[in-house]
Simulated scan of single mutants.
Amino acid sequence: MESPEALYDGLLIRPVGGGLVELTGWLVIIDYRLFIVADAHDKAKRIEFFDSAVVFSVEEKISPLGGGDSFIFHRAKVVGWLVEAKPPKIKPVTLNVEERTGEVVSIDLESKSSNKARYDEFLRHRDVISSVDWLDFYKKN
Protein backbone atom coordinates (compact mmCIF):
# COMPACT_ATOMS: atom_id res chain seq x y z
CA MET A 1 0.00 0.00 0.00
CA GLU A 2 1.23 3.48 -0.85
CA SER A 3 1.99 5.90 1.94
CA PRO A 4 -0.96 8.06 3.04
CA GLU A 5 0.93 11.13 1.89
CA ALA A 6 1.14 9.74 -1.67
CA LEU A 7 -2.51 8.63 -1.78
CA TYR A 8 -4.05 11.74 -0.33
CA ASP A 9 -1.85 14.53 -1.61
CA GLY A 10 -3.43 17.81 -0.58
CA LEU A 11 -5.40 16.48 2.39
CA LEU A 12 -3.77 17.36 5.67
CA ILE A 13 -2.87 13.91 6.95
CA ARG A 14 -0.29 12.63 9.37
CA PRO A 15 0.41 9.33 11.12
CA VAL A 16 -0.22 9.48 14.86
CA GLY A 17 1.03 6.00 15.84
CA GLY A 18 -0.40 2.54 16.21
CA GLY A 19 -1.57 2.58 12.60
CA LEU A 20 -3.81 5.59 13.23
CA VAL A 21 -3.81 8.69 11.04
CA GLU A 22 -5.09 12.20 11.64
CA LEU A 23 -6.95 14.01 8.87
CA THR A 24 -7.78 17.69 8.88
CA GLY A 25 -10.14 19.14 6.31
CA TRP A 26 -13.79 19.95 5.61
CA LEU A 27 -16.55 17.62 6.76
CA VAL A 28 -19.20 17.40 4.00
CA ILE A 29 -21.92 15.18 2.61
CA ILE A 30 -21.49 14.15 -1.03
CA ASP A 31 -24.01 11.87 -2.72
CA TYR A 32 -25.58 10.97 0.64
CA ARG A 33 -22.25 9.86 2.14
CA LEU A 34 -20.00 11.54 4.71
CA PHE A 35 -16.52 12.68 3.63
CA ILE A 36 -13.61 14.77 4.77
CA VAL A 37 -12.21 16.81 1.88
CA ALA A 38 -8.97 18.70 1.47
CA ASP A 39 -10.39 21.83 -0.06
CA ALA A 40 -13.90 23.18 0.10
CA HIS A 41 -13.84 23.74 -3.68
CA ASP A 42 -12.10 20.51 -4.73
CA LYS A 43 -14.12 17.44 -3.80
CA ALA A 44 -11.77 15.14 -5.74
CA LYS A 45 -9.34 14.92 -2.81
CA ARG A 46 -11.61 13.23 -0.32
CA ILE A 47 -11.80 10.34 2.10
CA GLU A 48 -15.11 8.70 2.86
CA PHE A 49 -16.18 7.68 6.34
CA PHE A 50 -16.49 3.91 6.65
CA ASP A 51 -19.91 4.40 8.27
CA SER A 52 -21.82 7.43 7.00
CA ALA A 53 -24.48 6.92 9.69
CA VAL A 54 -22.13 9.01 11.88
CA VAL A 55 -23.73 11.97 10.14
CA PHE A 56 -26.67 11.75 12.56
CA SER A 57 -24.32 12.00 15.58
CA VAL A 58 -22.78 15.08 13.95
CA GLU A 59 -26.21 16.55 13.26
CA GLU A 60 -27.12 16.25 16.95
CA LYS A 61 -24.13 18.34 18.08
CA ILE A 62 -23.60 21.10 15.49
CA SER A 63 -25.50 23.99 13.99
CA PRO A 64 -26.27 22.91 10.44
CA LEU A 65 -25.99 25.17 7.45
CA GLY A 66 -29.22 26.37 5.94
CA GLY A 67 -30.05 24.37 2.83
CA GLY A 68 -28.03 23.21 -0.10
CA ASP A 69 -26.42 19.91 -0.98
CA SER A 70 -24.94 19.39 2.49
CA PHE A 71 -26.15 20.66 5.83
CA ILE A 72 -22.64 19.94 7.12
CA PHE A 73 -19.80 22.09 5.84
CA HIS A 74 -17.45 22.43 8.80
CA ARG A 75 -13.72 22.23 9.49
CA ALA A 76 -12.95 18.92 11.17
CA LYS A 77 -10.20 16.74 12.53
CA VAL A 78 -10.62 12.97 12.52
CA VAL A 79 -8.31 10.33 13.93
CA GLY A 80 -8.86 6.79 12.72
CA TRP A 81 -7.77 3.84 10.65
CA LEU A 82 -7.56 3.87 6.87
CA VAL A 83 -9.57 0.73 6.14
CA GLU A 84 -9.64 0.95 2.35
CA ALA A 85 -7.26 2.55 -0.13
CA LYS A 86 -9.27 2.83 -3.34
CA PRO A 87 -11.62 4.48 -2.81
CA PRO A 88 -10.10 5.74 0.43
CA LYS A 89 -12.17 5.23 3.60
CA ILE A 90 -11.50 5.99 7.23
CA LYS A 91 -12.96 4.33 10.33
CA PRO A 92 -12.86 7.13 12.91
CA VAL A 93 -11.81 6.82 16.54
CA THR A 94 -12.28 10.51 17.34
CA LEU A 95 -14.01 13.28 15.44
CA ASN A 96 -13.86 16.96 16.35
CA VAL A 97 -15.86 19.50 14.39
CA GLU A 98 -15.38 23.27 14.48
CA GLU A 99 -18.58 25.24 14.87
CA ARG A 100 -19.06 28.57 13.12
CA THR A 101 -18.37 30.25 16.47
CA GLY A 102 -14.91 28.67 16.56
CA GLU A 103 -15.87 26.23 19.32
CA VAL A 104 -14.60 22.70 18.76
CA VAL A 105 -17.24 20.03 19.35
CA SER A 106 -16.35 16.41 20.06
CA ILE A 107 -18.70 13.97 18.30
CA ASP A 108 -19.79 10.78 20.05
CA LEU A 109 -18.80 7.90 17.78
CA GLU A 110 -20.07 5.07 19.93
CA SER A 111 -22.15 2.65 17.92
CA LYS A 112 -25.73 3.84 17.88
CA SER A 113 -28.22 1.48 16.34
CA SER A 114 -30.68 4.37 16.00
CA ASN A 115 -28.21 6.21 13.73
CA LYS A 116 -27.85 3.15 11.52
CA ALA A 117 -31.62 2.73 11.33
CA ARG A 118 -32.12 6.44 10.51
CA TYR A 119 -29.44 6.34 7.82
CA ASP A 120 -30.84 3.16 6.25
CA GLU A 121 -34.31 4.73 6.21
CA PHE A 122 -32.88 7.86 4.63
CA LEU A 123 -31.18 5.86 1.88
CA ARG A 124 -34.37 3.91 1.14
CA HIS A 125 -36.32 7.13 0.57
CA ARG A 126 -33.74 9.45 -0.98
CA ASP A 127 -35.19 9.17 -4.49
CA VAL A 128 -38.58 10.40 -3.24
CA ILE A 129 -37.20 13.82 -2.28
CA SER A 130 -37.09 16.24 -5.22
CA SER A 131 -35.09 18.97 -3.47
CA VAL A 132 -31.31 19.38 -3.41
CA ASP A 133 -31.51 20.08 0.34
CA TRP A 134 -30.21 16.96 2.10
CA LEU A 135 -32.26 17.72 5.19
CA ASP A 136 -35.60 17.76 3.36
CA PHE A 137 -35.93 14.02 3.91
CA TYR A 138 -34.88 14.35 7.51
CA LYS A 139 -37.37 17.18 8.17
CA LYS A 140 -40.30 15.16 6.77
CA ASN A 141 -39.68 12.09 8.94
Results as ranks from 00 to 15, higher is better:
Gly10His: 06
Leu95Asn: 14
Ser131Tyr: 04
Ser131His: 12
Lys140Cys: 11
Tyr8His: 13
Lys139Asn: 05
Gly102Cys: 12
Glu2Asp: 08
Phe56Lys: 04
His74Pro: 01
Phe49Pro: 01
Arg118Asn: 01
Lys112Ile: 05
Phe73Trp: 13
Arg118Val: 04
Arg14Cys: 06
Asp39Phe: 05
Val16Tyr: 06
Ser70Ile: 07
Asp69Asn: 03
Asp39Ile: 09
Trp134Val: 00
Lys61Ala: 15
Leu82Gly: 02
Ile30Asp: 09
Val83Tyr: 05
Asp69Phe: 12
Phe71Val: 04
Lys139Asp: 02
Val21Met: 07
Glu98Arg: 14
Glu48Met: 09
Lys91Pro: 01
Ile29Glu: 08
Leu82Arg: 07
Trp134Cys: 01
Asp31Pro: 03
Ala38Val: 02
Glu99Asp: 11
Val104Trp: 15
Val79Glu: 11
Ile62Leu: 13
Tyr138Ser: 03
Ala76Phe: 05
Lys140Ser: 15
Leu135Pro: 09
Leu65Val: 03
Lys140Ile: 15
Lys77Phe: 11
Leu95Tyr: 11
Glu5Val: 06
Gly25Lys: 05
His125Cys: 13
Lys43Met: 12
Pro4Met: 07
Tyr32Val: 01
Ile36Glu: 00
His125Thr: 08
Val97Gln: 00
Asn141Trp: 12
Thr94Tyr: 13
Leu12Arg: 10
Val83Leu: 05
Thr101His: 10
Glu22Asp: 06
Phe35His: 12
Asp127Arg: 07
Lys61Asn: 11
Ile62Gln: 00
Val93Phe: 09
Tyr8Ala: 15
